[in-house]
Amino acid sequence: MSSALEIKHLSKSYGSKIALDDLTASFPAGQITGLIGPNGAGKSTLLKAIVGLVKPQQGSIGIFDQPAHWKLNAEIAYLPDRAKWYKSHTIKQALNYALNILPGFDLPRALEMANLMSLDLDVLVSTLSEGHEARLHIILCLARRVKLVLLDEPFSGIDLLSRETIIQLLINSMLDQPQTILISSHEIHEAESLFEHVVFLNKGQLVLEGNAEALRQEKGSIESIYRGLFR
């Protein structure tokens, strides 16, 4: 299995606070990987480093066998943990705007997703509930024809129905095009059965990584492994 991402000896600290501590990990191409760890494990910093929003002090990041570079961002859809969009836009305006600024954005596909997720195109972003705003942000990522999708805490703080709709969309997305998807989470939620590979982080370091089915065979459910590691 070729890898989409090769992280080697990556270190990043903010002042005296260490976010990534000599982290080495790899992420297989064409699979959904769960990036799991408690708050402060370094998950968000790692994703930001991949898209160049954070500059590591040490180490290297390889993206599809190339050193990380801002030009590669055209091939990456990144959902930040606190994503925001222009409040004055309607959903329709947001999608049209995305078509102009996001490389590989597929508008017909986005409209189909909005329909599936019961998003009203004429509603203002400013009036959306957290769950519905999360649905919009997921569409802005998954409607792009890109090789790599990075989702930082996509299930955090939203209602059950929105979480389930997002899972449906992820399944559709995997069916429609081969993609590498990273999902960071500090809870396992309903996404566990989507993971094919899992990377556990703690205090900026790798704790455990492996094929999800092999881990289930050896140690049980991903959720129980998580509890065992961080109890």
């Binding site: 959904i32 399944i171 995997m174 069916l175 059965s193 989507l194 089915e213």
Partner: peptide
């Protein structure tokens, strides 16, 4: 279909 089963069981289509 793979699509139906993946959706109903919330499984990765690859599985």
């Amino acid at each position: 279909s793979v699509r139906d089963l993946a959706h109903q069981l919330k499984l990765n289509p690859n599985t």
